[in-house]
Design a protein around this nucleic acid. Structure first.
Length: 313
RNA sequence: GGCAGGAUAGCUCAGUUGGUAGAGCAGGGGACUGAAAAUCCCCGUGUCGCCAGUUCGAUUCUGGCUCCGGCCA
């Protein structure tokens, strides 16, 4: 059924049941699942990132999971490249690529593309060494005031964004603000579904899932990952929960406090995700949950069949 | 029973030399182009435990009461 540039995206906050719905759809449509999750990319973070189980992965082809050791630094640009290639090969097999995940920036960048902004890790390392420390922010602002006042105004209080702006400026000689283009059309004929729960219900699901994860081996998984250097890794260390579990394992927290802390931090993530999807994805359709898989599958089919592009391939 | 404490925002607490109050956390909203499960911005009226007294005016001083955690018996 899928045409060449068709793309199904299942998005939504954490614990909204994206993976489960994708699996249900896979039972009704010919689709392959591509993870759109910045943390599932890493090996060794299984329970903590709620990866699909081995059984589920055997049942339906899953991609972009377990690709990297957590010592590795992955970013949007890399994800977009990987996912783009992946989508192509899925489509070549005649299946519908279904990106499933909650990393909004990754999804948006995949759908709409990334501007061709320069990046240079050596330059960046130099900039970071010079201006990334907390007490160097004022200095950084002074530099930007002279060289790129527009970006300074934009990120006056966000050191990290300003560092990136300086990187782009240093490499290209031009302001990042000037190199970024405005809104543009999607690269795929995309149906984005955002799973939408009643607030308290989602909160409840998060608390419940946190408890389940802690009760089914997350502590041990975290212990091993931490022993393997997770907390010193460049990006994987940001995965929620592991730092808190480290504190718990060090005896600084009760088990109940740990569960509560993780649930809180997870809820805060969910809120940020919802804000993102509310405002960054004009193409999105919100699906009231719990959703009926049959109805969703029908909606998906209708979307891609009725499309003017569908017959082309 | 005695001795000193504490009682202020959902929680932990600060404060007002008497003119009705503010931080952190939680919570809510927002931004977002190479760290995004990240980073950052905005949002704080609550019988200042209860009753009485002093005072123009008390959450702030005085007395009593209630409750809580201590210490001594």
């Amino acid at each position: 059924m899928a045409a060449k540039h068709d793309l199904l995206v299942i998005a939504g906050p954490t614990a909204s049941g994206k993976s489960a719905l994708a699996l249900e759809l896979a039972g009704r449509l010919n689709l392959e699942i591509i993870s759109g999750d910045s943390m599932q990319l890493y090996r060794g973070l299984d329970i903590g990132t709620a990866k699909p189980t081995a059984t589920e992965r055997r049942l339906v082809p899953h991609h972009l999971i377990d690709l990297f050791a957590f010592s590795e630094r992955v970013d949007v640009f890399r994800f977009v490249k990987l996912a783009g290639d992946c989508i192509e090969s899925v489509a070549a097999r005649g299946n519908l690529p279904c990106v499933v995940g909650g990393t909004g920036l990754y999804l948006k960048s995949l759908i709409y593309g990334l501007d061709d902004l320069p990046a240079d890790s050596a330059v960046r390392a130099r900039i970071d060494a010079q201006y990334a420390a907390g007490d160097r922010f004022e200095e950084l602002k002074k530099v930007m005031a002279a060289r790129d006042p527009v970006s300074l105004t934009r990120w006056e209080k966000n050191q990290r964004r300003l560092l990136r702006a300086l990187e782009v400026l240093t490499v290209s000689g031009r302001s990042i603000s000037e190199l970024q283009s405005g809104p543009r059309p999607a690269r795929y004929r995309t149906l984005t579904l955002v799973l939408d729960w009643e607030r308290d219900e989602l909160k409840r699901r998060i608390a419940e899932r946190t408890g389940k994860m802690l009760g089914s081996g997350w502590l041990e998984e975290a212990r091993i990952a931490i022993a393997g250097g997770l907390l010193d890794s460049p990006t994987a260390r940001q995965a929620i929960g592991y730092d808190l579990i480290a504190e718990y394992l060090a005896g600084n927290m009760t088990r109940n406090a740990l569960a509560a802390r993780i649930a809180t931090v997870t809820w805060q993530l969910a809120r940020r995700q919802l804000t993102w999807f509310r405002h960054q994805h004009p193409e999105a359709e919100w699906v009231e949950c719990p959703a009926d898989p049959d109805a969703v599958a029908e909606r998906v089919e209708r979307f891609f069949r009725s499309s003017p592009v569908a017959g082309r391939n």
